[in-house]
Design a protein around this nucleic acid. Structure first.
Lengths: 343, 343
DNA sequence: TCCTCGGCTTGGATCGATCAAGAGGGGGAG
DNA sequence: CTCCCCCTCTTGATCGATCCAAGCCGAGGA
């Protein structure tokens, strides 16, 4: 704190601390990085000097010498307007906290949607980050292959769907288990005609979530034919799909691949004056703010994003340790946030 | 790209480029930072070498020498669960893009709510960031005073409400103008008994937004007494407040300080079987995803967060230039996203 | 008393870029 | 023809922390 008095423009350096403590620079460095090498009384003296001067190692100098930046790159993917998919917020918060505890900071960067590798390249070449957390793996994962080839350490939030042989570390949430949970919840409530509204077939995640619904239905020998719809992830699509299903298949409940689609279902029900929760039940996916605050509340599958962040950081620590420890993939289980949309 | 072939562990340095181009290190440095100093043909030769080797300046080395990190610190404040206030998402995205264009990266850090200054100190002392963007200014602004005293460059998103003499740069959105816009919109629709549900009196922002409502009402000689309520920013509070107001003041419209409160109003209306939009109009604030996807849609005041981010970066560039240019505060105008909740 | 050994400390070199000054060459003015 | 200047490029030093190998010191054994 002391240096805030004197100009505050040049923070104290290691040499300043050394002089004050009456030791050499290397001793101060050891006090910071390998305290066990010092005699206890010397250590105390140095630590006092550090505290008095308010010393903190210059990151640039340390990074230059150690060839590490203690930064983790994260491409920030904003939620689309008009959808209910703002998961980034919750996820990033825990990520920042957890990585901070491990001595890492999160560096955000933007990337165009056209060039999935854009942004990664620059940061890597300028040694601005030690590793990446890759999150946008919904449609295959070109970044993973690219980063692997580049020998850049990274951990993915999302399984390598399109490449079972990928060996990189990943953390994911078992979407199928989530929709199975949701479907069983509805089955337990007495519903038998439960419809599915999901994403188009080329979405790995969408198909995974869908499989949880079919698994639960088939486990009770209930049919799924004619009860499923695959559309784009928009309110309008969900609404249309629900309307068609209500006419043709007369389901008493809907399980959806996203809260956005579930909101579309609520629209459709509202159009017909159907009371959701009482007449027809609806379950969404992601436990977004929308699910939480919509009147009555929307039952939704909740991803343990906090836990995902913790596991990601744990995996990164392994990767960045010497020697690197590459753990296997981690699959976490979601929970179900039950609200009035399922009675 | 070339170095991806050979081990990919030690990126090329400035010296490598210099050797390849047959010039000195300094010339390469100039080619990168002051191209106008080079003779055109030399410049081309160096640029070719840079491209061939896939060279990118080592950030740590550059940061050490120039005493600048080209990083901007941002404390990440997540939206509270159960509210509709996820503005960070939209804001951060533009911020990342805009600052990237100016050569700055966004470094996230966490901070406990108890210690508003926590996190800032470390980053500053270790020269990990050049400046900060301070966003959590809702209740006074201890960070601003602290950073000013510390002579740390920063720009605030939010006016220095509690300290009119503060001289730091800031960007803010004219909340009063927003609620005035909302109120006038309702007045134009023929409403005269328009209620206000806002935050408790110690919130500067809450009082500012409230003043827009009173201004619009008084401009048409309409009374405001008995039509206002000040509560906490939760769904439940909004719902209660609306219930009381409906009983006692019989308003035909509500203007709210947040989408969260507005959702509370929708709950209250739903409780009584009142159709929002037709019988009673509601306006929220922030144009959250919730406002966008709730059935019918919630009319809401939309903050120009993208523009805010651009202005913040512009202000930062001024601050970090030599000599620093401290611009005055910037006040931006919100717009109104009209949806069915106002008919 | 001398020597050795282990633990702690020391100065010097290093990471890769930029700053500050200086060297070389060509062109215009006298 | 000479001088000077300017434009272009080069050389040496520097930012601050860490790695390296050598140096110092006191304790213990012969």
């Amino acid at each position: 704190m002391a240096w805030s008095g004197r100009l505050a423009l040049t923070p104290p350096t290691l040499a300043d601390v050394a002089e004050r403590a009456g030791v050499s620079r290397q001793t101060v460095s050891n006090a910071v990085n390998n305290p066990e090498l010092l005699r206890p009384d010397t250590l105390v003296r140095v630590q006092d000097a550090i505290a008095e001067l308010g010393y903190s190692p210059n990151r640039a100098a340390r990074n230059l010498r150690t060839r590490a930046s203690h930064m983790i790159g994260l491409k920030f993917n904003p939620a689309q307007e008009g959808t209910a998919n703002a998961t980034m917020d919750r996820f990033v918060h825990t990520l920042v906290e957890t990585s901070g505890d491990s001595g890492y900071h999160i560096l955000l960067f933007a990337g165009s949607t056209e060039d999935p590798v854009g942004g990664y390249d620059d940061l890597l070449r300028s040694t601005a980050v030690d590793a990446f957390i890759v999150t946008d793996t919904y449609l295959g994962n070109p970044q993973a292959a690219w980063l692997t080839q580049r020998r850049a350490p990274f951990v993915a939030f999302g399984r390598p769907w399109d490449n079972p042989e990928a060996t990189h570390a990943w953390v994911d949430v078992d979407g199928a288990a989530g929709t199975e949970l949701a479907t069983n919840h509805l089955l337990d409530k007495g519903h038998t005609r439960i419809a599915w509204i999901g994403w188009r077939k080329d979405s790995f995640i969408g198909e995974d979530r869908r499989s949880g619904w079919t698994r639960a239905m088939h486990a009770r020998d209930l049919p799924t034919t004619g009860l499923a719809s695959r559309v784009e992830d928009t309110i309008a699509s969900g609404r249309e799909a629900a309307t068609v299903l209500l006419d043709e298949a007369r389901p008493t409940a809907f399980v959806c691949a996203s809260d956005t689609l579930a909101m579309g279902v609520l629209h459709a029900l509202g159009d017909r004056g159907i009371h959701w929760g009482q007449d027809v039940a609806v379950v969404g996916f992601d436990d977004s703010q929308v699910a939480q605050v919509v009147p009555g509340g929307l039952t939704s599958v909740r991803q343990p994003l906090e836990q995902v962040a913790v596991e990601l950081v744990k995996a990164l620590e392994g990767l960045l340790s010497t020697p690197p420890i590459a753990g296997p993939g981690v699959l976490l289980s979601p929970t179900l946030a039950v609200r009035l949309s399922t009675g």
